[in-house]
Structure formats: structure tokens, C-alpha cells
Simulated scan of single mutants.
Amino acid sequence: MEQRMLLVHAHPDDESINQGATMAKYAARGTQVTLVTCTLGEEGEVLVPGLAHLASDKEDRLGEHRITELANAMKELGVTDHRFLGGAGTYRDSGMVWHESGHATAGEDVKEGTFWRADLLEATAHLVEIVREVRPQVLVTYDQFGNYGHPDHIQAHRVATYAVSLAAARSFRPDLGPAWDVAKVYWGAMSETRMREGLRKLRAAGDTTTFEGMDPEDDLGWWVTSDEFLDAEVDANDFVAAKLAAMRAHETQIAVDGPFFALSNNVGNEVWGTEYYRLVKGTKGPVDERGLETDLFAGLE
């Protein structure tokens, strides 16, 4: 079977942080990996002082710069098919603020043309066309809360979920291509157990700055998923270097001396080389002794 995987993410860098190792592993084994990014990430914080002038409150040219960052990241992962929903610049980054409860949320003044304010059917039709062209057996996106509440992540979840349904309906927009039913849909996840183990090792080693404020013995909030709800584990430890290189390519968003790169090789592999998923559409394939799939294409012929 010719394997095809489609990932739907909100901003450049989300894909590398969340599924970079998985993308690199599947691309290396010959799977057709397609990435759809919904915005250019125009509202992102600029971490490189020399590029601060690109920020949205200055020259507002960060989006065009992040197109190049994404292209460079995809080269590191070996992914040759990456697109922007509706074309680059169709939907603008909606920005976010931190809610008093600790999660991200939409700000009071969301600009016109942002992804959060996009017409759901219009945005979905753009993705339906891609789904019908690519014909993926597996689609990966965020959960209903966008992992931590970012409005663009939530909207990406909505668009991806709606697109899977409409792409399979042969009477919906036949001009967008023949109907296609995505066999398996996954939401990316972070294992609660694995995250706690990694944090414990970091704290035991005297590192109190990486994931500052997160206590391995306390509630980790929206960032993790209880292991009882995990369905798949992709061991891509051989591709940690590619994932970290892809993250470095997003230079305006991820500081190379920040928490992503402060991890020791051992803890870093555990936290970043193994990626977890929740199966939300389709039939679970063969599993290991823990009840987890080790291949997102498990059970597909």
C-alpha cells in the first residue's frame, strides 16, 4: 500500500514541535507526508533581536519570513509537500492572550482576516480539495482544545474535522475532486507519564528552568493526556536530531538556548523522540503489550 499522511497545523513551527520526529520517520521510510499550515504565524513573538523589526506591531513582515523558516524546517524533516491553507496569506494568525486559568484564548480585539474569524465552510473547502487530491489514509491534527487553547489551534481542529466529513461526501462540491474517506484520524498528544518522568529527571539533575513552573508531582493541566486515553506511540528516537534541526530552523520562534535545547540527550530523546496520539476516527490496528499502536498505519492494507 502506498502510504499517505496529512497533517493540519495552525502556524509554522507547530508541526516540528508536535510531530517533527514522526514526520521525519515516515518521510524516511517512503510515506507521502503532506503538511497543511493554516496561517503564516504573523503574530508570533520575534526571539531574534536582529529581526525584531519584522514583528506585527512594526513592519508586519514576520509572516513572509516564516514561510522561509518553514521551508527550511521541512528540508530537515525530509518533507517535500507543504502548503498553506488556501494559499500563503489567505488566513492571518489570530494571536492569543493568556487566560487567568492558565490556558491560551482569543484576545478581545481579533483582527479581520484572521483564521479565528474565518468562515468555517470556506476554510474547510480549501482543505477538502487537498484531502481529495492527496487521498491520505491518515490525518493528524489537534484535539478540540487545540492542546492548550490557542484559537488558531482550535480552528484548525474544527476545519480538519469538518473537512474529513465533507471530503467523504460525494455530493459535496464535486468540483473539488472525487470523494475520499480518510481511514484514520489522530489527535497529537503528550503522555502524562512520560512528561512526569522527564520532568523528574530534569529536576533531579538540578534543572529548574526547563519547563519552568511545571511540577512533576502536580497537575500538569492542558498540556498532557492521561495515558489511558492514548492509542498510539511512534518511537522516532532515531530522528530526534532531524526534529531539533527543524525546530532550530524556526529561529524567530524557538530560542536555541531555551528549554527545547536545554534537555540532556537522554531526557531529550524521551521527551521529543517518542510522540503520542489519540485515535478519534477509524479502527485500531494491532497493538503492543500496553495496548498501543506503534504505527499510525496499523491495520490498514
Rank of each mutant, 00 (worst) to 15 (best):
P12Q: 08
P12F: 13
P12S: 08
P12R: 07
D13S: 13
D13K: 12
D13C: 11
D14R: 12
E15P: 00
E15H: 07
E15N: 01
S16N: 03
S16W: 06
Q19R: 05
A21T: 04
A21D: 01
A21H: 06
T22Y: 08
T22E: 02
T22P: 05
A24K: 02
K25P: 00
Y26L: 09
Y26F: 14
Y26K: 12
A27Y: 03
A27G: 02
G30C: 06
T31S: 03
T31P: 03
V33I: 09
V33R: 00
V33C: 11
T34P: 06
L35Y: 07
V36P: 03
V36K: 04
C38K: 10
C38E: 02
C38L: 15
L40A: 10
E42N: 15
E43G: 04
G44L: 08
G44K: 03
E45S: 13
V46N: 01
V46K: 08
L47N: 07
V48R: 13
V48H: 02
P49Q: 05
P49V: 05
P49S: 03
A52H: 12
A52G: 12
H53W: 13
A55P: 05
A55Q: 07
S56V: 13
E59W: 10
E59Y: 09
D60H: 15
D60C: 12
R61W: 08
G63R: 06
G63K: 03
G63M: 11
E64P: 02
E64M: 07
E64T: 06
E64I: 09
E64S: 04
H65F: 15
H65E: 08
H65W: 13
R66T: 00
R66Y: 12
R66G: 01
R66K: 13
I67E: 07
T68V: 15
T68P: 00
E69P: 11
E69V: 10
L70A: 14
L70P: 07
N72L: 14
N72Q: 15
N72R: 15
A73W: 04
M74K: 00
M74W: 05
K75M: 12
E76H: 15
E76R: 14
L77F: 11
L77T: 05
V79N: 00
T80C: 06
D81T: 07
D81I: 08
H82A: 08
R83D: 04
L85I: 09
L85E: 01
G86D: 07
G86T: 05
G87L: 13
G87Y: 14
G87K: 13
G89K: 12
T90G: 03
T90C: 06
T90N: 02
R92W: 09
